[in-house]
């Protein structure tokens, strides 16, 4: 078995354990896991940009937002998507997210580094501005309540375990799809662009197009995450598209380890866990969250997924009295 196969096996086992254990816990944990999984799709979509293409986006919540608003508006105004047509809404949400990314990408893709961060922030704010102010469509500050969950073929998504499995299924499918994508030749050339764009251009790659396609794919998965989020939360409001939601997604990806996909899932579970579980125990939970972020960025440039590698490095160099500073400044 190669180390790659071992890693895949570990992820499959972990997901299997999650699927078996979570439904047997209480409803609080089930809801929390459902949320974390729905949001993790967004984090993974961001990781395609951040970890595999080297584009740090600060506006990823926009795609979750359009997916969620599309779901909510279809469900409340047109009673659409509450039966078997739920699957059509899933498809539609992905298309809306991808379409938005196709428009935004035209503006954003040329920018790199911090400029990309800024332009995606501006674009994300455009969506937020519309969600917040366009009362007749979005319900403004109050948002839209989704009171009914879809029911079809004997499945009632209002039942928390059923809904958990639906979200889990779509999450696993997304993870698989994104994994295939990043392992494909296309994904490999994205990594090449991340490492050195100029070299890829010289080799004859159309780097703009590669980045643009990656951006659209990320937008599509963001839209999917939005559809699931809308039904998980039961309400869609400007809060979902606000800057801090994009920032959350970015931090979860970095916390778990950018460029690993599953790192984002771990990040999502940790943050949702801290936020929703720890907050019921202690009033100072946000210090823990903030400290976790700060320490991760300072000492774990590759996130939690980078810990085994760090230990290996430390072991390899401990005999040679390594200077801790050189370890801390591993380029990210």
């Amino acid at each position: 078995m190669t180390s790659q196969q071992i890693k895949i096996l570990m992820v499959v086992v972990a997901l299997g354990a999650l699927a078996v254990i979570v439904p047997n816990t209480n409803s609080f944990v089930i809801l929390l896991s459902t949320r974390a999984l729905a949001f993790a799709i967004l984090v993974m979509s961001l990781d395609i940009l951040l970890g595999y293409t080297g584009l740090a986006s600060l506006g990823q919540a926009a795609y979750l937002g359009v997916g969620a608003y599309a779901t909510a508006i279809l469900a409340t105004t047109y009673q659409f998507g509450l039966g078997m047509d739920f699957w059509l809404v899933i498809l539609f949400g992905m298309l809306v997210g991808a379409a938005l990314a196709a428009v935004f990408g035209l503006l954003a893709i040329r920018a790199t580094g911090v400029y990309f961060l800024m332009i995606t922030l501006a674009l994300g704010q455009c969506v937020w501005g519309l969600a917040y102010r366009w009362n007749s469509l979005t319900g403004g500050d109050n948002g839209i309540n989704l009171r009914v969950k879809p029911k079809f073929a004997g499945l009632d998504l209002g039942h928390d375990v059923t809904f958990f499995y639906v979200v889990f299924f779509l999450f696993a499918l997304s993870l698989l799809a994104m994994y295939v994508l990043v392992q494909s030749p296309f994904g490999r050339s994205l990594a090449g662009i991340r490492e050195r764009e100029l070299r890829m251009q010289i080799l004859g790659y159309n780097t703009w197009l590669h980045k643009y396609i990656a951006f659209i794919i990320a937008g599509g998965f963001g839209g999917l995450s939005g559809v699931l989020w809308a039904h998980t939360a039961g309400i869609v409001s400007p809060e979902n598209v606000v800057l801090t939601t994009s920032v959350d997604a970015l931090l979860m990806a970095v916390l778990g380890g950018a460029g690993t996909l599953v790192g984002g899932v771990i990040g999502s579970f940790i943050v949702f866990g801290l936020r929703e579980y720890l907050s019921t125990l202690v009033p100072w939970w946000q210090y823990v969250l903030g400290a976790v972020y700060v320490l991760t960025i300072l000492y774990l440039p590759f996130g939690l997924m980078g810990i085994p590698e760090r230990i290996r490095q430390w072991r390899a160099s401990s005999g040679k009295q390594a200077d801790p500073k050189t370890l801390a400044s591993v380029p990210s």
């Binding site: 040329r110 704010q125 455009c126 102010r133 366009w134």
Partner: peptide, 20 residues
Amino acid sequence: PEISYFTLYAPMALILAVKP
């Protein structure tokens, strides 16, 4: 009022796209 923030951030994105 309905699109007031949009009128603020859309030009910002456009400016960035044209002149980073």
